[in-house]
């Protein structure tokens, strides 16, 4: 597996995504732990979106959209697990569960929308 570094021919040694992957994760963690919906949703979106962008950039997938749908599916599972576990915990997980599901829905919509409508002429293989 050779990960070819580089955003483009000219800038081989840079990528804009890692910073945002690393920013999305803590924001999502904070949101989920303390039940802060905006942080949870926004953090998950930032994280998921950046992962999808990075996968495309490094050539593991050919468009970011399907990757986003796959990530959305994983997020659904996490959200579902939270909702499933909800009745068993002393502290309510409802809000956290729905926040996660909401992020998954947004990613799904963006992914499907992108797949259908985006002109990715400028997206390098």
């Amino acid at each position: 597996m050779d990960e070819t570094p580089g955003l483009s021919d000219q800038y081989r040694m840079v990528s804009p995504w890692p910073l945002f992957v690393a920013l999305g994760l803590p924001i999502a963690e904070l949101g989920l732990l303390f039940g802060l919906v905006p942080l949870a949703v926004g953090g998950l979106l930032l994280f998921g979106g950046s992962v999808a962008g990075m996968l495309r950039e490094s050539g593991y997938v050919s468009t970011p959209w399907r990757a986003l749908v796959a990530i959305s599916a994983l997020t659904f599972v996490v959200g579902g697990a939270l909702l499933y576990a909800d009745p068993m915990t002393t502290v309510s997980l409802t809000l956290r569960g729905y926040a996660t599901v909401a992020a998954a829905v947004v990613m799904l919509v963006v992914g499907v929308g992108g797949e259908l409508f985006a002109f990715d002429t400028d997206v390098a293989a």
Binding site: T4, G6, D9, A124
Partner: peptide
């Protein structure tokens, strides 16, 4: 940032 992208893709196995 995407504007930086010059369109030629770096072929698989292209050395950095």
């Amino acid at each position: 940032v995407e504007d930086w992208r010059s369109y030629t893709p770096l072929g698989a196995g292209g050395t950095a």
